[in-house]
């Protein structure tokens, strides 16, 4: 049997970074922790290699690169030339039929699992080392054909001008072992935000602090709006609610996101009901217990299927990120107000 190169998240864990890249390994670990992350599967670095070998791309690219001599492409112009040639070559090369068939089959399983025809997915790059922004990610991808096309696009993004330049300047080989790709269900956020299983400023570990707003969580994560704030006492279960006016929200557009006004009726009511708060706190505590240290969690409630489904999209140890992340947001606010005289934020 051919080597395995496609894994569902529940088959993966944090030890699998070399196999499927960082993002997939993290999603796997969270799935293992019984945290409901958006369902999906990962293509390993091996899948990238298979595609490159079987379709003859490794050979064709090596052949093409010979024109730059032993030193490889030097200079921005040649990076650009190599990048556009290789990316076009890859994006027009069909996926080997056996691979395409297996991806189609697994995408159909995902549709069935989500109980949707042509479920919208995100196709994300998952490099074994962090190189933010280097490779592409595609949102709102639907249909078997599009999923396959976008996986290839993510693979081809290993030859962006920036990626080639980085390799040349650091004397790394131009052909790389590959990157992982995550294919996961798009979450339609009704409400989203962050939760800390320890008070992020007072470090009081008897509290869970939730911040949330309507729409996508990025305005909370990025500090763009004043979110609702809910503080729950872990021991007594007592809940403190602070409602903030939520004038705008971030939602998905065809590709990317945009900001729209929140309907007036929703502006001044809490973005979570009591049942949702209870479920979120229970899940947060479960994650904290699993990892053994306080967690900073990004969460989403999705009501697109008629029920209010809770997903976690990211979790991190508070000890590591606490101070810097929170500070950075606070400072960003101050910068807008004091240096650019902004009236919002």
């Amino acid at each position: 049997m051919a080597a395995k190169w496609l894994y569902w998240f529940d088959e993966l864990g944090i030890g699998d970074i070399e196999l499927v890249g960082k993002k997939c390994a993290n999603l796997g670990e969270m799935t293992k922790a019984k945290v409901s992350v958006p369902p999906g599967f990962a293509l390993s670095l091996e899948a990238y290699q298979r595609y490159m070998q079987i379709s003859g791309l490794t050979e064709e690219i090596s052949g093409f690169l010979q024109r730059f001599g032993e030193q490889g492409p030097g200079g921005y112009g040649e990076f650009l030339e190599a990048s556009s040639f290789i990316r076009e070559l890859m994006e027009t090369k069909p996926m080997p039929p056996d691979m395409a068939a297996e991806i189609r089959q697994n995408y159909r399983s995902l549709c069935i699992q989500c109980d949707q025809e042509d479920v919208a997915v995100a196709v994300r790059s998952s490099g074994p080392v962090s190189m933010p922004g280097a490779f592409e990610t595609y949102l709102n991808v639907r249909s078997e054909d599009d999923v396959i096309a976008h996986i290839v696009k993510v693979w081809a993004s290993t030859f962006t001008v920036q990626a080639i330049g980085h390799r040349v300047n650091n004397n790394h080989p131009l052909l790389i072992p590959g990157i992982g790709v995550a294919v996961l269900k798009m979450v339609q956020a009704k409400t989203a935000g962050v939760a800390f299983t320890m008070h992020p400023t007072t470090m009081d570990n008897t509290k869970v602090v939730i911040e949330g707003t309507w729409g996508l969580g990025e305005s909370v994560v990025g500090g763009g709006v004043s979110p609702d704030r809910i503080v729950v006492d872990k021991l007594t279960g007592e809940v403190e609610k602070h409602i903030n006016p939520k004038l705008q929200q971030v939602v998905y557009k065809d590709k990317g996101t945009h900001t729209v006004d929140v309907p007036e009726a929703l502006q001044n009511i809490l973005c979570l009901n009591d049942d949702e708060i209870r479920r979120l706190v229970a899940l947060a505590l479960q994650v904290e217990k699993y990892y053994g240290v306080a967690q900073d969690i990004e969460w989403v409630f999705d009501d697109s299927q008629g029920t209010s489904d809770l997903y976690l999209v990211q979790t991190r140890n508070i000890s590591v990120i606490k101070s810097r992340k929170k500070e950075a947001e606070q400072i960003a606010d101050m910068m807008l107000r004091r240096v650019f005289h902004s009236r919002v934020g």
Binding site: P132, G222, G224, I331, A332
Partner: peptide, 16 residues
């Protein structure tokens, strides 16, 4: 206002 939103996003990784 639109630019303020974008600026904040660029600022965070720098500050971190």
């Amino acid at each position: 206002r639109r630019r303020e939103e974008g600026f904040r996003k660029q600022l965070i990784p720098f500050l971190e």
